[in-house]
Design a protein around this nucleic acid. Structure first.
Lengths: 228, 228
DNA sequence: CCGTTGACTCGTACAGCGTACGATGCGATG
DNA sequence: CATCGCATCGTACGCTGTACGAGTCAACGG
C-alpha cells in the first residue's frame, strides 16, 4: 500500500470522478497538487509550504497527498521542475542565428526563476528534473550545431549554466527584499572605511541586473565560440 | 532578558570561568558555538544541524544557546560567513599581476565552499556577512586598480560573483553524491532518444570541473578587461 | 558582610511539523 | 452479492524550534 514511486504517467482511470462532483472540488491529482504547491510557494514562500496547508487549499485531508507523492521533498522537486518548463519555438532553436537562440533560452530561464523566487533557493538542493534536462539538451544541441567541438561541449554547457544559475540566484536573493538591499547599502555606508570601493560604487543599489546578465552571457559566448 | 541582538564584540568578562573548570568543557561562547556548528554541518549536513544536537556537542543545555544567538537562522548565517573568510596575502592582492590576484581569490572562494558543501545550499537564502563583503571589496579594489571604468565596476564585480556562485553551487550539488550523478547519467541513457546530445557527451560524468571553472573566469575577465 | 544586580544556564512545556498506520468509502469485476 | 484495488482521511507519534521562568554565581555598592 505504499505510494506510487514508479515513473508512470498519472493515468487516472476512466472511472468517473463522481456522478456529480457534488462539491466543486475536482478530485486530487498530481498535476493539481503541483499547481497548487506552486501557488502556495508564490504566495507564502518556501517556509509557507506545509503539507496541511497545501491540503487545505486542495480541499482534501493532509494525508491524502501521500497517495500521489511520497514525501514533502518530492513536492519541492516537482514544483521546481514544473516551473522550469521551456516553451520555446523549435524554429528559433534551429535558426541559423544560434546566438540569439541561446540567449533567448537563457533569458527565459532566468525570467522563469525570477517569477518564482523560491526556485532559486531550491535549486542547490535538487536533482535534474526532465525540464532542466530538456534545457541542457537544447543548449547542447545549439552549441554543437554552432560548431563547438565535441571535446569542449560539456565545458561550454556548464559554463553557461553556471553563470545563469549564479546570476539568477543572486538576483532572486536581492529581489526578495528591496528594503533589505537598501538597509545593506546603508550598513555599508556606516562602514565606508572598511569597504570603500563597493560603498562608493553603490554596489548594492545602482545596478543594471538585466544588462549585466546579458553582457556576461555575451562574454562567455565570445570565449566559447569566438566570432570570426 | 532578551538575547543580545547588538553588534558588540563577544566580550566575555574577565570573570573566571570556574575556579577550576571542573569538567573539561570550556564555557559557552559565540565562537565556540559557531565552530561547533560548522563541525556539525560538515559531519551531518544541513538537516543534521539541530539545536539540541548542537548543544549536546557543546556539553550544554539546548536553551543555553539562545543567550548567544537569537534563533537557529542566525546560527546558519554565522556558520556560513565564518567559512567564507579570506586569508589572502595583501601583497598578492596589490601585485601588478591583478589577473592572478583575482583568480586566486575566486578559486579560494570556490574551494572554501566546496570544503563545506552545505554552504552552497545556504547561500541563496542568506544575506551579505562581513566576510562576503570583504571579498567583494577586495574584488572591486583589484578591478578598479586594473583599470575597469567606474561605471562598469558593479557589472564586473557581479558578473564574476555570479559565475563563481553558479559554478560552486552546481559543483557542490553533484559533489554531494557521486552515485546520484552516476544514477542520473544512467537514467539519461534510458532516455537517450530524448536527450541525445547530452547523453552522448556524458554531460554528467566526463567533466573537468576545475578546468571549466578556470576557463569561464578567463573568458569573463577577457570580456570585462580586454587584454591589450 | 550582606543584599542586589546582571550575565548566563537550563528544565519544562507547548505548538506545529512531517508522516506511519489502519480504517473507510466506492467503482469495477466476478 | 462478495471481492478487490484505488483513493481518501482521522488519529497519533516522535521530533522540532523556542517561550518562559527559575536557578546559579561573580561582582559590586553600602
Amino acid at each position: 500500500m505504499a505510494a506510487r514511486r514508479d515513473g508512470t504517467q498519472d493515468k487516472r482511470p476512466q472511472r468517473q470522478a463522481a456522478p456529480i462532483p457534488s462539491a466543486q472540488e475536482p478530485p486530487l491529482s498530481l498535476e493539481r497538487i503541483i499547481a497548487t504547491a506552486v501557488e502556495l510557494l508564490d504566495a507564502e514562500g518556501i517556509d509557507g509550504l506545509k503539507m496541511r496547508r497545501l491540503a487545505d487549499r486542495l480541499g482534501s485531508g493532509a494525508m491524502s497527498l501521500y497517495w500521489h507523492v511520497s514525501n514533502k521533498d518530492e513536492v519541492f522537486d516537482l514544483a521546481l521542475d514544473s516551473v522550469l518548463e521551456y516553451r520555446g519555438s523549435p524554429q528559433l532553436s534551429e535558426s541559423p542565428d544560434w546566438r540569439q537562440a541561446v540567449v533567448h533560452m537563457l533569458e527565459d530561464w532566468r525570467a522563469s526563476m525570477l517569477r518564482h523566487p523560491w526556485s532559486a533557493s531550491l535549486l542547490p538542493r535538487r536533482a535534474l528534473g526532465p525540464n532542466i534536462l530538456a534545457r541542457l539538451e537544447l543548449l547542447g544541441g545549439i552549441l554543437s550545431r554552432a560548431g563547438v567541438d565535441e571535446a569542449d561541449l560539456n565545458g561550454a554547457i556548464w559554463s553557461l549554466w553556471n553563470y545563469v544559475m549564479g546570476a539568477t540566484i543572486t538576483r532572486a536573493n536581492f529581489d526578495l527584499s528591496d528594503e533589505d538591499m537598501l538597509a545593506g547599502q546603508q550598513r555599508l555606508a556606516h562602514l565606508s572605511q572598511e569597504y570603500p570601493t563597493i560603498e562608493r560604487a553603490r554596489l548594492l543599489l545602482d545596478n543594471d541586473w538585466d544588462g549585466v546578465f546579458r553582457k556576461g552571457v555575451d562574454f562567455l559566448l565570445d570565449g566559447l565560440v569566438p566570432r570570426q
